[in-house]
Amino acid sequence: MALPAADESLWLRRFHPRPNAAVRLVCLPHAGGAASSYAPLSALLPPSVQALAVQYPGRQDRRHDTPLESVHELAQAVFEALRPSAGQGPLALFGHSMGASVGFEVARLLEDELGVVPAVLFASGRPAPSLHRSLGIHRMDDAGIIAELQAVSGTDDRVLDNAELLRLTLPSLRSDYKAAETYRYRPGPKLACDIVGLTGDGDNRVSIEEVAAWKEHTAGSFTLQVFPGGHFYLQEQKAAVAGVLTDTLRAATRTGHPLH
Rank of each mutant, 00 (worst) to 15 (best):
Leu224Glu: 02
Gly202Tyr: 00
Pro47Ser: 06
Gln50Gly: 04
Ser153Leu: 03
Ala179Leu: 07
His96Glu: 06
Leu160Met: 01
Gly89Lys: 07
Asp112Phe: 00
Leu198Gly: 04
Ser48Ile: 07
Ala100Tyr: 00
Gly256Ile: 01
Gln88Trp: 03
Val71Asp: 14
Gly99Ile: 05
Glu80Asn: 04
Gly87Tyr: 14
Ile145Pro: 06
Asn204Trp: 02
Pro29Arg: 00
Ala5Phe: 05
Ser85His: 13
Phe104Ile: 03
Asp156Pro: 08
Arg139Leu: 09
Ser36Ile: 06
Glu105Ala: 05
Val71Glu: 10
Ser85Phe: 08
Pro19Asp: 11
Arg24Tyr: 04
Ser42Gln: 08
Arg126Leu: 01
Pro47Val: 02
Gly125Ala: 06
Val206Leu: 04
Gly144Phe: 12
Leu191Gly: 07
Ala31Asp: 07
Ala240Gln: 09
Val159His: 02
Gly197Met: 03
Asn20Tyr: 10
Thr155Glu: 13
Ala151Asp: 12
Ile146Lys: 09
Ala100Ile: 04
Leu74Met: 15
Glu148His: 15
Ala119Arg: 08
Trp11Ser: 11
Ser70Pro: 06
Gly144Leu: 11
Leu249Asp: 11
Gly243Pro: 04
Ser175Lys: 13
Ala240Val: 05
Gly220Val: 03
Pro258Gln: 11
Trp214Met: 05
Phe222Ile: 00
Ala53Ile: 02
Ile137Tyr: 04
His138Ile: 06
His72Tyr: 04
Gly197Thr: 05
Leu68Trp: 15
Asp161Cys: 02
Thr246Ser: 01
Ser48Gln: 14
Ala192Met: 10
Pro258Thr: 12
Ala75Asn: 14
Trp214Glu: 00
Glu8His: 12
Gln76Arg: 14
Asp7Ala: 13
Ser9Phe: 08
Lys178Thr: 14
Leu245Asp: 10
Arg158Ile: 04
Val241Ile: 11
Cys193Ile: 06
Leu166Val: 14
Pro19Thr: 07
Leu44His: 13
Arg254Leu: 06
Ala22Asn: 15
Val211Lys: 00
Leu170Cys: 02
Ser101Phe: 11
Gly58His: 04
Ala34Glu: 08
Ala5Lys: 12
Ala75Lys: 13
Ser221Tyr: 10
Leu44Glu: 01
Ser9Asn: 12
Arg108His: 00
Asn204Lys: 13
Ile145Lys: 11
